[in-house]
Design a protein around this nucleic acid. Structure first.
Length: 347
DNA sequence: AAAACGGGGAA
DNA sequence: TTCCCAGTTTT
């Protein structure tokens, strides 16, 4: 079923692409203008960039393409190694889906080149499928990320609050997306949003779309897009347990789904977003306090106490592995547990 | 439709 | 501190 059609307007794309030719950001996953990018690198960067800043992604992207230069190489990697390499980047279901996607793509002999087929791959939602279709395959696709939402909401002075405004923003983006250079157009919109029309600023004097911008005409573009009020973050407490013996520390691998799913970790007392941990150690004997780590997740704050085992030599323990402390970096601990380990090792 | 899901950089 | 970021998946 069709939504109310907005008539196409080629003017913004014309101005924006002219600006982009002289002001494109130089990013590791981009290629020279006119060159055809490697779909593998486009896909990898787009997945890493989901809800993640370019600054955070850059070193991970370099590490991944050096270690796994092709989708076939990544498909052949053990999932645990990819998870460990992803450690610190967050949203770990992305890493699990990355491996699943690489294996599907390798099995079928390459990436599909249409938005619809890309959308079926694990970890590719509406944004990423459109972005890859446009950037890697030159398809016309309507690419809407947080930058585009902001730029379009201002350009068209869309007053409806997010997330309700998504449909209107998508329609407005569709109406200004060109038939050719849709990939450059998408990246230009993102560059504009990242450098000129930012969340906290609007450098309208530098903006190539200023003459067309209804948000600027209202005199207060910064109030757009309007966002719904966010709810308060719950506060939780929990405990992690440091058990060290003969130069090795006891690590577990967390369950596949849920918080930090599939990642190596210190054993803990079952804390979650819904409830505090029970506090009971995984092993009898003496324990001493090792300090507290404060960590903020997307949907709750955690105060994690670290307990250090001070009992007799451990004989029977199972469900994990002894990991040499001097190689702890290679374990791929998520940041929360890396902080806890740092606390213990610095004492 | 709403909640789950990380972490770091910027102001 | 608070806000936000090249969103997707599950409930």
């Amino acid at each position: 079923m069709d939504n109310k059609a907005i008539s196409p307007d080629p003017a913004p794309a014309a101005l924006l692409l002219e600006w982009y030719d002289g002001h494109a950001r130089d990013l590791p996953w981009r290629v020279k203008p006119g060159a055809r990018p490697d779909p593998y690198r486009v896909w990898l960067s787009e997945v890493m960039l989901q809800q993640t800043t370019t600054a955070a992604v850059t070193p991970y992207f370099a590490k991944f393409v050096a270690r796994w230069p092709t989708v076939e190489a990544l498909a052949a990697a053990p999932e645990a190694e990819v998870m460990a390499a992803w450690a610190g980047l967050g949203y770990y279901s992305r890493a699990r889906n990355l491996v699943a996607c690489a294996r599907e793509v390798a099995a079928r002999g390459g990436f599909p080149d249409s938005e619809g087929e890309l959308r079926k791959l694990p970890g590719l939602g509406p944004y990423t499928a459109a972005a890859i279709a446009a950037i890697a395959f030159g398809r016309r696709a309507v690419v809407v990320d947080a930058n585009v939402e902001r730029v379009v909401a201002r350009l068209r002075a869309i007053e409806e609050p997010l997330p309700g405004a998504r449909k209107a923003i998508r329609a407005a983006t569709d109406a200004i997306t060109p038939e050719s250079r849709a990939g450059d157009f998408a990246q230009a919109m993102m560059d504009l949003g990242a450098t000129i029309c930012t969340a906290r600023d609007a450098k309208c004097l530098l903006c190539p779309l200023a003459s067309l911008c209804r948000g600027r005409a209202t005199g207060d573009p910064l109030r757009l897009p309007v966002k719904a009020a966010k709810k308060a973050r719950p506060r939780r407490t929990g405990t992690a347990f440091w058990i060290e013996q003969d130069g090795a520390v006891w690590l577990v691998t967390r369950a596949g789904r849920g918080m930090l799913g599939g990642m190596r970790a210190l054993p803990d007392d079952g804390w979650s977003a819904r409830a505090d941990g029970h506090g009971d150690p995984p092993l009898g004997g003496r324990w001493q306090a090792g300090g507290v780590v404060r960590h903020t997740f997307s949907h709750f704050d955690l105060e994690l106490g670290v307990a250090i085992y001070a009992g007799d030599a451990v004989a029977d323990i199972s469900g994990g592995e002894w990991w040499p402390v001097e190689r702890l970096e290679a374990a791929g601990l998520p940041t929360l547990f890396a902080k806890a380990a740092q606390l213990v090792l610095a004492r």
